[in-house]
Design a protein around this nucleic acid. Structure first.
Lengths: 169, 169
DNA sequence: GTCTATATTGTGATAGAC
DNA sequence: GTCTATCACAATATAGAC
């Protein structure tokens, strides 16, 4: 992804990431992207099949970055969970694209998704059922926080600690 | 809300709900909605301020329906949690609008949101921290299931039971 | 590898006739 | 309370000149 292509293709990736992070997925249009590259939108199609290829690129990148963030955290489940929250809230748009939006599986490198799944099981330990339930909790916390669905006066630090405690059983 | 307006306003609500349920929020445009009513889009504005009013209407309705579904379930936490899943998966688009999308708070009746919060605490029991963590888990399970992020061979019934068990502590 | 011009389709919203 | 006509945009994408 991104690295095996020409320099303009590389810049397309870099700017699409910058655009996503600053303005969100809805703003990632061919026009906006072209503006950032100081070219016209139709020129993008000489380097890229279409918008889906760009989104798939971002998903692949996001999955990799997420994996590294989790791997870099302390080995304890508590630290892994907090790393999950941190990465998600620091990269809310990338989080949405990689861990909430349906994956463009046809365009993703083989085995990449399995890598995340494996990683999540590593965070949560035990069997698959437990892992999925805990993942759901982490994702739910992040998603509701980003959507602003918790009351303003909610102490989310406390909520996360409580969640981690719940998961450790 | 829907009931205090004229007959056309009522039909607008009914058809917007039908459109949402069958084609999703992105398809809920003024044009599509007008088509269903066999009128032209500009005519809608004689009955409604704009699209936001319609979405707010759906949120209010969704909150009420959700509340009733949870209230109707057996008193046990297990039954409440399963009712949560059932309502969400049977009304995925309404679920998204009411429990995931940021609420249009300015357009919602006073106290309506607090009602759901109260209801969720009722499902989950104990203190606010516990309630929020459990809610996040339920929401995460639903959201990941709808987005197709669990492996195809995952046994989600089992996952839910495990999650409920985890929450009962 | 860039450009202009264009096709096609979509959106929310307003003005003013009837 | 409906209509037509229109504004002002936005989107993805293609054709073909240079």
């Amino acid at each position: 992804m991104a690295n095996t292509y020409g320099p303009t293709r590389e810049r397309i990736f870099v700017e699409s990431l910058a655009l996503l992070e600053s303005k969100g997925l809805a703003s990632l249009s061919m026009r906006n992207l072209a503006d950032r590259l100081h070219i016209k939108a139709p020129s993008l199609y000489k380097h890229v099949e279409g918008r889906d290829e760009i989104v798939a690129d971002l998903q692949a990148y996001g999955i990799t970055q997420f994996g590294q963030a989790i791997a870099a955290a302390n080995k304890s489940k508590r630290a892994k969970a907090l790393a999950y929250r941190r990465w998600a809230t620091e990269n809310p748009h990338l989080y949405e694209v990689t861990l909430r939006t349906p994956l463009l599986r046809d365009r993703l490198p083989e085995g990449l998704e399995d890598g995340v799944t494996q990683m999540i099981i590593e965070i949560t330990g035990k069997d698959h059922e437990h892992a999925r339930a805990v993942w759901a909790m982490l994702h739910g916390l992040v998603d509701l926080e980003i959507a602003g669905r918790f009351p303003e006066n909610a102490d989310l630090d406390k909520t996360w600690l409580r969640a981690i405690q719940m998961a450790s059983q």
